[in-house]
């Protein structure tokens, strides 16, 4: 708020001094060497065990392979985005319930938040895959993976949003109230927009977890990247090469998400809007 305000980030990521800079450089160089060595070792192992044999790699020369993987990637992105949006909506509702001050709502929402945070995603997946159909709930495989992933994330999203709301100085709310705005408007126009800006990096980190959770799609037979990779593996009997590629793609997706979070955080500091 004030011009002299020091954020937590400033404290954590203070500009390093010359000594620290030297150390950072040294450690970076050492880890680079180590990673290259490990990589070389891995390639060497592959060579020895015959994993570099053409029969494990030739199909990457075919357009159809890439098209098939790309379709899986689209599936992954669709599930992740839909889950993300759903988790955000559910999380928002749970968060508003939890901070509503109404006893029953607080209790119910707190319980739901703890429940969804505590239960492993795979159990939710099995619920929609095995249990729900027995009660006549027949869903497309897309929803059989999207719903459990969303459920599993919504409690965390609720808590992230709540921490953002708590971080908004209470003077913001008081100023809005004193201008004659009703509570609901104060929350939607003043408090929540600021809370949301605070937690964008944390929400993107949660999206990384959502992306990883989508790999449970194989359980319900939804053709995501992982599932399509498995198909390739059984077709060509080439486990290592395909999984390696899939891992690289997942790493790239999540790296980009983390980059976006970091970029946003830095960008905000630069413009120093909040």
């Amino acid at each position: 708020m004030n011009a002299g305000h020091v954020s937590i980030k400033d404290v954590l990521y203070e500009e390093p001094g010359p000594k620290l800079k030297k150390r950072i450089k040294a450690v970076t160089a050492m880890s680079t060497v180590l990673i290259i060595l490990l990589f070389a070792l891995m390639v060497h192992r592959f060579y020895i065990t015959g994993q570099l044999d053409g029969k494990y790699w030739f199909f990457f020369g075919r357009l159809s392979t890439w098209r098939f993987l790309f379709r899986g990637l689209i599936g992954t992105v669709e599930v992740a985005l839909t889950s993300g949006v759903l988790a955000f909506i559910l999380g928002f509702i749970l968060m508003t319930g939890r901070i509503s001050g109404k006893k029953a709502a607080v209790k119910i929402c707190t319980a739901l938040i703890e429940f969804t945070r505590g239960v492993p995603t795979l159990l939710f997946v099995y619920f929609f895959f095995l249990v729900a159909p027995q009660f006549g709930l027949k869903l497309a495989s897309f929803w059989k993976i999207t719903l459990p992933v969303a459920l599993s994330a919504c409690g965390v999203v609720a808590e992230v949003l709540r921490s953002g709301v708590n971080a908004v100085p209470k003077g913001q709310r008081e100023a809005a109230l004193s201008l004659g705005m009703v509570e609901r408007k104060v929350f939607l126009k003043i408090v929540f927009p600021q809370a949301f800006r605070y937690v964008i990096p944390a929400l993107l980190s949660e999206l990384v977890i959502v992306v990883k959770d989508t790999t449970f799609a194989y359980v319900v037979n939804f053709p995501d990247l992982m599932q399509n990779a498995s198909v390739l593996i059984s077709n060509y009997d080439a486990m290592l090469s395909v999984y390696l590629l899939a891992a690289v793609i997942y790493i790239i997706i999540n790296y980009l998400l983390n980059k976006a979070a970091a970029y946003y955080a830095g960008h905000r500091k630069e413009r120093s809007l909040l």
């Binding site: 708020m1 100085p169 003077g171 008081e174 004193s178 600021q194």
Partner: peptide
């Protein structure tokens, strides 16, 4: 809405 209030810490809407 008819009573203006000015605070010690200004409380301008930061966003």
């Amino acid at each position: 809405s008819k009573i203006g209030m000015v605070f010690q810490s200004f409380n301008l809407f930061a966003h």
